[in-house]
Design a protein around this nucleic acid. Structure first.
Lengths: 240, 240
DNA sequence: TCTTTTAATATGTATAGACATAATAGAAGA
DNA sequence: TCTTCTATTATGTCTATACATATTAAAAGA
């Protein structure tokens, strides 16, 4: 079971050995992994060292520990994946494209209706921004964004000529919680004209709401023509 | 800084106290958190107890630890989210719908072309399945799936009349790695007819490739009309 | 035979001490 | 002044020990 990698600490080696066996299918759900005492002997170390490795696996959800019984490979959670939804500017520039943002509309006003009320509070003030993201000069996607002025008052003095609002917010609101929804729509007349596609062209729409410390910050709708953008999810564990 | 919750262990309390301060914005990126010695005194416990809490935060990526300098709040990684991509049957039944799968096509053959070759190996055998997912009797989505017979030989004796292949695989292939891609397409003639929508209707397409222990298992394309399905991503950390 | 009690067991958490290692501030030297 | 060395500092890892707690197997009793 032991490995021959010398740069790792003992507890990391134990953790990785077991993790690899679980992820490779060598250990299946409900299989028991060796007891702490047994691992102590296998790796010739103390129980605290074993415990650190095995506790880490438990906290990551790969195993379940039961007193008096031992540690067992967990049943993987239902399928989920980590989806990368990067800032558009960063993403494009990383891929070697030039990026541009063209502001179409900017207005400061009071919140109307339930959707805007949820963001800024009933009668609260918000800023609405609409613009086009460009990659190498070509229209890449459309963005409509509402930002609560209560949450980000300094945004009122920013004109966003050239700077995309997403990038600006990244620099002004540290850490946050977000909720995403991804669906397919046909481009409406207005958006189609700006993106230089025909009405009804299948587009990916990403809706995102962001909170900072429980306070709503922004609500965005980004529209990308189906042939210009997709979202890619990395590895994941699986199964109910 | 201390909390008054008695059911938690000391190290959990330390971890949660700090975690809350980071996520709430009370501690910002590059801020230093108290040294281990200081936390020992604040929580009246030993260094190992503090170390367990703080190491856990480091392993979760919330803080960065530097010898001789201290521990600092990390810069959140670029925007990513955990997207829930559940088994369709489980998802619909959980939401109170009846679920049905209608098999349209089933064939066993050898792999042709680079895409199929990547799955089953050049000249390797695979099974191709096409079918319709139904919610409350109505067409909900179309699925085309290739499965490597080398990876899952027992699938050859399964006829999938009624059982969706995804659910069947869930029960036969434990743990796995997957790669997802989500994009928007217009429904083609064949799929449109089966889904009872018009050609070109915007659809969400989910492409998924799955491996077990590095061996390719299955490659799926699922097509959902834009008005019938979306993907929802939960909370996340943020920022480059 | 069935129920209750007891003892054994594996994990959960915590301690104090030890030595290693990386990074730096400051001292010593050129 | 600039470079080099050294001591200090905070974290990284590990050990041996201790007691708590949940669970279960076995013993004791009805």
């Amino acid at each position: 079971m032991a490995d021959s990698n010398d740069t790792l600490s003992v507890s990391e080696r134990i953790r990785l050995d077991i993790e690899r066996q679980i992820l490779s299918g060598g250990l299946k759900p409900d299989d028991r992994i060796p007891l702490e005492r047994e691992l102590m002997e296998i790796y010739d170390c103390s129980r605290m060292t074993v415990n650190k490795a095995v506790s880490e696996l438990a906290s990551r959800g790969l195993i379940v520990r039961r007193k008096r019984a031992g540690s067992f490979v967990a049943h993987p959670p239902s399928d989920s994946t980590i989806l990368d939804i990067p800032d558009i500017r960063l993403d494009l520039e990383r891929k070697g494209h030039t990026y541009g943002y063209e502001l179409l509309h900017r207005s400061v006003r009071t919140a109307k209706g339930p959707e805007e009320g949820a963001l800024a509070g009933k009668g609260g003030r918000l800023i609405e921004l609409r613009g086009i993201h460009r990659a190498d000069g070509q229209p890449f996607g459309h963005e409509r964004r509402l930002v609560s002025l209560a949450a980000v008052p300094e945004i009122e003095h920013e004109d966003f000529a050239g700077t995309p609002p997403g990038t600006w917010l990244l620099g002004h609101v540290p850490w946050s919680q977000a909720e995403h929804r991804i669906f397919a729509v046909g481009a409406d007349v207005g958006i189609a004209a700006h993106l230089e596609i025909s009405e009804g062209t299948p587009c990916l729409m990403l809706e995102r709401r962001t909170w900072l410390n429980g306070v709503p910050v922004t609500h965005v709708w980004q529209t990308f023509p189906g042939d210009r953008h997709s979202f890619i999810g990395a590895l994941t564990r699986r199964q109910a």
